[in-house]
Nucleic acid binder design. Structure first.
Length: 800
RNA sequence: GGGAGAUUAGCUCAGCUGGAAGAGCAUCUGCCUUACAAGCAGGCGGUCGUAGGUUCGAGCCCUACAUCUCCCACCA
């Protein structure tokens, strides 16, 4: 028996335990077709926010739909707990930098800290009702994951897609590591545009250069002008003298210089930006690297050596002013590249690092992208845009501690790398020794002290899921996986890198489908994020005050890929819906006390009408879900459900209550209808509300779990009753309106109802005459004929 | 500057391959009706961002513009 009132907090705990104890979501391969989800392992960089609930709940809805559709659903959960995000969390909590704590101690802190947070994540996502197989949960920093990441790396080395090179790289002075292009974030900052006079050594002529980075004056290796620039082309071939630092550099020509930008003369430093690197390579310019790894000017630079970058900037401007070289200084707001993990401006450095080839295979990555179905489809354009515009190979070396180590040592004598043997993985080169000698005969080695980029590991999630390289693996069933789910911000990282790896390892797409969710925005329409501090409600608080089912209602509303506002209104709507589901179930349960399910087809007219409505709804419900449109599917389901409650139940209740008046068979027809439809409604709603539907299902249908049932269409589509049934409801609605307008209760009898109806509608009403009269409390009904539709001639209320 | 999306009722959002503008919230009016007052029945409320175009017919298709959001590129 269902309780008088539903207690979500109690019930949700109960079913969580039940699902867990009975392995309801456990994945075991069998003869069913597998549907596999590659859901994002959340980055462990702090507590999750409600945006996480949103996108993970949507993925779960798909998993649940596929399970109900008869697939054997593979839906593991993972934690992305290695790399910079976790390191920064620990540094923040400790109030110390990794380098000050020391590698070993720091790594231990990272393990401990991420464990604590993972338990919290697991608790929150569990409570949200994710139907994940937690026994298949993975961590990207576990020995198994390290092994697979290293194996993946070695495979790329073998195939020639990973290479080590001394090369310019993006460098973060705050995190003390190199980073990849995908980790950049643009930020608008206020700065100054400094117009500085340089002179031509040969003629003494002055010309002006505009720069936002005067501290780079000591790093200038060349000055460029556009060969078509009439004002400056005569400078080409001459020598520029740089004031203050007193250095001479050549003046050269390049088409890339924009004549109308700044002064039309550009200083080329090593390195101030991407173009500098291009020119440096193109013209084989000398290298003047003037920054230290922690953001200072190197000591060998006279006067400015040892200063912090910004300090040096101020000082150089001062010195330029003093020497009379500054023409003017303008305030400027412009966009700079910052590191997404810390928000600080990035610099460039030159060092030996591991790269994965991106630039030579862009076309292949685009092609693989074309083979994947993107939902919503315009997200494909975002992917294409990123791949087309990417300018660097993927630098995967990070000069950090907590992550997957490179299974590589370098020969002390000749510097040649020696790789770990695959059978020895996972290895830690700092502890383990390589197998054998270098080809030069030397047997002394230096370990690679770097760790891999976070994305180098998380791009392995399909590999982790299939247990790549293991004997007893899932390659057969998970190549490719069915669905990747994530928010749009990581298309360029997680999605892209996963495609890269899948292409290099298997020459195939990693998944058949990608489902991209939108963002949660605050009441001003701005994306919720920790850095903006506009995420006010905590997930736990939300789940406690609203119940998981209601939170999921909110998460499941709206169109796929569309941003959604955090809205109390939507939560209220969810609360009402969940409440209604419980109440109508209670009503139905009450009328099923003596019900015995047996084959029966001779339904009453109104019963066929509602069955037909359901059938029609169910078709579009399934269609939407097959397109991953969980929100639109919920819309049609919800609409049907309220029609079921407010119209059908109101009609059938008289028949259910009073068999002596209506007869046993019509009552059974009603019972069979509500029994059948409630079951199907519970199935449909179970995708969104796994808890309350289980509660009701267990009380009325007594199966193992509603989540292990199978969606099946009705035997018939009951199309014939749809149109005239709808018209009858219209008439009922009109008559109710008359009662409401008269300020009387809906139980007020109608003394006389006079209708003109078309022949088809007349038949319908006559077939359901008892239901019709009972619903409106009609004492006398007069039906007259008309050609088309109906006309309500008279509604005479009994106002006694 | 490049790419993507959005713009529909006071608010939050649906609106399918073009065919008489929808829901919830809010607001107003009734109603304790043998599941539900966290309910039920009704009412008010919209030049579908602007301007053109295609069409018998446009919220939907095309063009331009405006505003907002997201992603990218711009450190000269």
């Amino acid at each position: 028996m269902l309780d008088k009132k539903y207690n979500p907090q109690e019930s949700e705990q109960k079913w969580l335990a039940y699902w867990n104890d009975n392995n309801i979501y456990k994945f075991t391969p069998d003869d069913r077709q597998v549907y596999s989800l590659d859901a994002p392992p959340p980055t462990i960089s702090g507590m999750p926010h409600i945006g996480h609930l949103f996108s993970y709940a949507q993925a779960d809805m798909v998993a649940r739909f596929k399970r109900l559709s008869g697939y054997n659903v593979f839906y593991p959960f993972g934690f992305d707990d290695n790399g910079l995000p976790s390191e920064r969390l620990v540094e923040k909590e400790q109030g110390k930098k990794a380098a000050d704590i020391g590698r070993e101690a720091f790594n231990k802190l990272c393990y401990d800290t991420t464990n604590v947070y993972e338990a919290k994540y697991k608790d929150i996502f569990g409570r949200l009702g994710l139907s994940s197989d937690w026994t298949k949960a993975f961590k990207t920093v576990s020995p198994e994951s390290i092994k697979i990441s290293q194996l993946s790396f070695l495979d790329l080395v073998e195939k020639g897609y990973a290479y080590r090179k001394e090369s310019p790289a993006l460098w973060c002075n705050e995190c003390l590591t190199s980073i990849a292009q995908a980790e950049l974030e643009t930020k608008t900052i206020k700065t100054t545009f400094n117009y500085v006079n340089f002179s031509v050594k040969e003629t003494g002529e002055l010309f002006t250069i505009a720069t936002t980075r005067p501290e780079l004056l000591p790093a200038i290796v060349c000055v460029f002008v556009n060969p078509k620039d009439k004002a400056h082309k005569h400078l080409i071939g001459k020598t520029a003298h740089i004031p203050v630092v007193e250095v001479d550099v050549p003046i050269m020509a390049d088409d890339k210089v924009a004549i109308d930008k700044g002064t039309g003369v550009v200083m080329c430093c090593t390195f101030g930006d991407q173009t500098d690197i291009e020119w440096w390579k193109k013209y084989n310019l000398p290298l003047k690297h003037i920054f230290t790894d922690n953001g200072r000017i190197i000591d060998s630079v006279p006067k400015y050596g040892g200063m912090k970058i910004k300090e040096a900037r101020r000082q150089i401007v001062e010195d330029l002013k003093e020497g009379g070289y500054i023409v003017k200084i303008e305030d400027l707001e412009h966009e700079v590249q910052t590191h997404e993990r810390c928000g600080l401006e990035v610099e460039y450095t030159v060092m030996s690092q591991w790269f994965i080839d991106i630039m030579n295979h862009k076309k292949d990555f685009l092609k693989k992208g074309d083979e994947i179905k993107w939902y919503p489809s315009h997200m494909h354009a975002r992917y294409n845009e990123w791949v087309k515009n990417i300018a660097w190979d993927w630098c995967i070396s990070r000069q950090r501690y907590f992550g997957v180590p490179f299974p590589v040592w370098y020969c002390k004598k000749c510097g040649k790398p020696i790789f770990a043997r695959k059978e020895d993985l996972p290895v830690n080169p700092l502890v383990d020794k390589p197998h054998g000698k270098c080809s030069c005969g030397c047997s002394e080695f230096v370990p690679d002290t770097d760790v891999m980029d976070t994305w180098a590991t998380s791009s392995c999630t399909p590999l982790l899921n299939m247990r790549y390289g293991e004997k007893d693996n899932y390659e057969k069933i998970l190549r490719p996986m069915s669905l990747r789910t994530n928010a749009s911000e990581i298309i360029r990282t997680w999605d892209f890198y996963t495609i890269v790896k899948s292409f290099y390892h298997f020459n195939e797409r990693p998944w058949d489908n990608v489902m991209i969710s939108g963002y949660i925005t605050d009441s001003n329409g701005q994306k919720l994020s920790k850095s903006k501090g506009n995420s006010k409600v905590e997930p736990t608080e939300l789940l406690n005050t609203q119940s998981a089912d209601v939170v999921r209602y909110w998460a499941g509303s709206g169109r796929l890929g569309t941003d959604i506002m955090f809205s109390e209104d939507t939560l209220l709507r969810g609360r009402k819906l969940v409440n209604k589901i419980f109440n109508v179930s209670k009503f139905i349960e009450m009328h099923l006390a003596d019900y015995e399910d047996k084959p029966f087809e001779d339904f009453e007219y109104v019963d066929k009408w509602i069955l037909g409505c359901f059938d029609q709804m169910q078709k579009s419900f399934v269609k939407y879900l097959n397109d991953y449109e969980v929100g639109l599917a919920l819309n049609v389901l919800e609409k049907f459900f309220w029609n079921f409650c407010d119209n059908y139940i109101e009609i059938v209740k008289h028949r259910l209550y009073r068999p002596e008046e209506f007869g046993q068979k019509p009552r059974y027809s009603g019972q069979k209808t509500v029994y059948t439809l409630l079951y199907k409604l519970l199935q449909d709603f179970s995708i969104y509300f796994p808890f309350i539907t289980e509660e009701i299902y267990q009380n009325i249908y007594h199966g193992r779990s509603v989540h292990l049932t199978k969606l099946e269409p009705l035997k018939h589509s009951y199309k014939n009753e749809k149109q005239n049934g709808d018209l009858m409801v219209e008439i009922i609605s009109y008559a109710r309106g008359e009662k409401t307008n008269a300020n009387v209760t809906l139980k007020t009898p109608i003394k006389n109802l006079v209708l003109y109806v078309c022949p088809e509608l007349r038949k319908a009403i006559e077939k359901s005459i008892k239901d019709f009269k009972a619903t409106l409390f009609i004492e006398n009904l007069t039906l007259s004929n008309t050609d088309e539709g109906y006309k309500i001639e008279k509604v005479e209320l009994d106002l006694q």
